[in-house]
Design a protein around this nucleic acid. Structure first.
Lengths: 338, 338
DNA sequence: GTCTCCTCTGCAACCGTTTTCACGCGTGAC
DNA sequence: GTCACGCGTGAAAACGGTTGCAGAGGAGAC
């Protein structure tokens, strides 16, 4: 280990040309004679040269890398976001630098700064907080193309791509209503994220539209445990025909608690989640959920980054993609008393 | 957006000193007069300067970053590895660059090269393949400190840190035997990874030691679906007292299939997994599993990287950490016919 | 034969830091 | 008064690539 790195100068010397020519031959950006190209490649091969990405980036001012900051990589949902983003970038030979803000606005700010100082070509952020996430992100945004994903933050003139939560909730409630549900409970999170509030409000609107009774709105946090707790509360008070959850992880807790209380799902209560995690297929019973168009979101995020790189002064845009409902056994199509 | 980046020269000019002095004041590496330090900081503040990490790294030859390559970030187990590695690095103010090899040796090689060209200070790899993963990794290893984690590869003179699979399997079988189990089946993966083969062999050894009957060894892949398939096969043939799974995700499939076939777990069959994913607490019933010392592994991996950076010629070392058994309802302590 | 044009090559500067080296200056020892 | 020393500072080189510019040389037009 620890031999001196071999540089383009070494290659050039061995090939008997100038570093400039060697560089041109290797990158292929500018035509060089066949003879020279052959010699340079041979030399490069022989020495085992490979370009130093940092030096190159410093000179060219591009890293072919975008950065992403998510509140928690170990959250299956954000993990999916990262995964699909990576796949989309790989298609255009770019790579992804992943950072975790651990749900803290301060750490988030550090991570954003870090990525900017690393000269990423673009930045994708799922903001950990609401307005308090903004300063750091906006500061980054006037150095590098930046797009918010999943969570919207009020007042930012930032590009955004996310899911139409209202439409998702409409699909859920339409589905439940068609299945003969008369009363519902909502189990969600108290957090101030746009997704949490958006889903709650859409739920209320749809319940009202269909004149369905809402027996409870349980607001806590996005966790399995909270789902369990909320389910216990519902059991103690009044059990509705259906429980609508604002996230799958919460729905899992609800399912589990109902199961333990010997409440039949879906016969007695229907349960619906949101996000359509891989997890949903392995719950018992498998969970009906709202699927977001993940790949399309990633694609769109990248498109927005590239568009802004092209024209930094273009107006900010907000892309909202339609989700779809994935019906599984926890809330089948068939009417309740059918 | 897109103002010219502010450099240390700009700061220096504004503060009325040379770039060298500005750099020294800002980094604090070398004493400067209080007066100068004040002026430089004021100037830096005013201009909103922040160091370009690439330029710095190019000069100092350190990035304060380690790279990690895993076969699939969307696999909860590897995700946990990444997560804990990030946490450990953060403690010493370093960061992690994550790459996904998508279970392909070719992509893995690319990712490894990429990280090396980015001048990471260290490299952590969960090899996607067996011996065929080796060339790229070994090439990397003589440029930068490298450690394999989780999966061992024969013949590499590489540092390694992982879990004692034999000990884990001993815990499992001892536990089952103590609970009165007489016959077992093994559901695992056919892959040539050290973890897969290690667990299978340990299973056989432990079964022999306790003179327990092995009704079947079902080898497929690490997936939920495979767990379901294997369980169906067991149901069609002979159902043992316990099913030992080589990974939790497989155990989930088994549980699900047994549930659907109305086989009582743990009363009729006990099920045990391996890895102790967060997932295990939300299965029904919650899954008994072998917990690996993740945090300690990450810590140890980092220690090995640092040690090798210190002394590149030190002999390679192999750290194997003891796992522990987490007993849950899918396989309780109480004897079977108690 | 001269002029123009075109292709390929080399020199040197550049990206933004850090660091080596040398120097100026003040202090204290002798 | 000289010398050694320590401290803070600046000029310039370095990290490892790419690229603007200019020049060399050959081909083709007249």
């Amino acid at each position: 280990m620890e031999q001196r790195r071999v540089t383009v100068r070494d290659v050039a010397k061995l090939a008997g040309v100038s570093p400039a020519t060697a560089s041109r031959a290797l990158s292929g950006s500018v035509p060089v004679s066949a003879e020279v190209k052959r010699k340079v490649f041979r030399a490069s091969e022989e020495l085992g040269w490979s370009a130093n990405a940092l030096a190159r980036a410093l000179r060219t001012q591009r890293t072919d890398t975008v950065g992403i900051v998510v509140p928690a990589v170990n959250n299956p949902y954000f993990m999916a976001v990262v995964d699909v983003m990576e796949a989309v970038l790989a298609a255009s030979d770019r790579s992804l630098m992943v950072c975790d803000s651990r749900d803290s606005v301060e750490i988030e700010a550090h991570r954003v700064d870090l990525l900017v100082s690393r000269m990423v070509d673009g930045l994708v952020v799922v903001p950990a907080g609401g307005a308090d996430s903004l300063p750091a992100i906006q500061r980054a945004a006037d150095r590098v193309p930046t797009v918010l994903i999943d969570r919207w933050v009020e007042g930012a003139g930032l590009d955004y791509v996310g899911t139409d939560n209202a439409e998702g909730m409409r699909l859920v409630v339409d589905h439940l209503q068609a299945a003969g549900v008369r009363s519902m409970a909502f189990v969600g999170a108290r957090t101030a994220t746009s997704t949490a509030t958006g889903r709650l409000q859409a739920f209320r609107a749809q319940a009202a539209r269909h004149r369905l009774r809402v027996v409870a709105e349980e607001l806590g946090e996005y966790s399995f445990t909270w789902g369990e707790t909320a389910a216990r509360r519902l059991l103690d008070a009044e059990l509705p025909d259906a429980v609508v959850c604002s996230a799958d992880i919460v729905a899992c807790g609800v399912l589990n608690q109902l199961h333990q209380a010997n409440v039949a799902v879906p016969e007695r209560v229907r349960v619906v989640g949101f996000d359509d995690l891989p997890l949903d297929q392995i719950t018992y019973p498998p969970l009906t959920s709202v699927r977001q168009a993940m790949a399309e979101q990633a694609q769109e995020a990248l498109r927005l980054l590239d568009a802004r790189a092209e024209d930094p002064s273009r107006p900010s845009s907000r892309s909202v993609l339609a989700p779809s409902l994935v019906v599984r056994e926890s809330s089948p199509k068939a009417p309740r008393h059918g």
